[in-house]
């Protein structure tokens, strides 16, 4: 018996996988570089023994994590779904944890599109929505889709409920 919620229909851009892999790769390179420096310092200044152990544990965790970071974007891409209609924004995501989110259009306060340097290379935008409580992001949509989605949400979110 599983959670039985109809999945939203729209997917994010397939190029998202590449964007995520590139950014994960950059993070991994930085991470391993820091770890390398620490190992060098540990050896050079002969730090306490337990520090060495912690570094080894960190390395042991980092290697599978690095490998995983090349696989997870595919699963993440597969798991991401969104839907925007006149009444609700529905988001579904999550690799380890399946997450379904339902936000009424009337509760959305702001919407914006954003683009980082890697996303720019692929012409992708993310759309971020703010409610009174928090903000939620649909990552990596092609430019036209992102802009039209942003405008659509902005138009629909103008409606306010009676008691606000």
């Amino acid at each position: 018996m599983h959670v039985n919620i109809r999945e939203p229909r729209n997917r994010v851009s397939r190029n998202a996988i590449r964007v995520w892999i590139i950014s994960e790769a950059i993070q991994n390179i930085i991470g391993f570089a820091v770890l390398g420096v620490l190992f060098y310092l540990d050896d050079r200044f002969s730090w306490k023994e337990w520090i060495g152990w912690i570094l080894i544990i960190l390395l042991a965790i980092s290697i599978p994590a690095a490998i995983w970071s090349f696989i997870s974007p595919y699963i993440q891409y597969k798991s991401w779904r969104y839907d925007v209609d006149e009444e609700y924004v529905q988001l579904k995501s999550g690799v380890w944890q399946e997450k379904h989110l339902l936000i009424p259009m009337t509760k959305i306060q702001s919407v914006e599109t954003m683009q980082g340097p890697i996303m720019r290379k692929y012409g992708l935008y993310s759309v971020s929505m703010g409610t009174m409580g928090s903000s939620h992001v649909i990552p990596a949509l092609p430019k036209e889709e992102a802009v039209s989605l942003r405008n659509k949400i902005a138009r629909l979110a103008k409606v306010k409920e009676e008691d606000e």
């Binding site: 599983h2 959670v3 919620i5 944890q97 399946e98 379904h100 339902l102 936000i103």
Partner: peptide
């Protein structure tokens, strides 16, 4: 009518037990 967001999550562990 006062709730502004609703969320359902299920981890893989919870799914094993049919929970969320």
């Amino acid at each position: 009518s006062k709730i502004i967001e609703a969320e359902v999550t299920a981890t893989r562990w919870q799914k094993l037990f049919g929970l969320a």
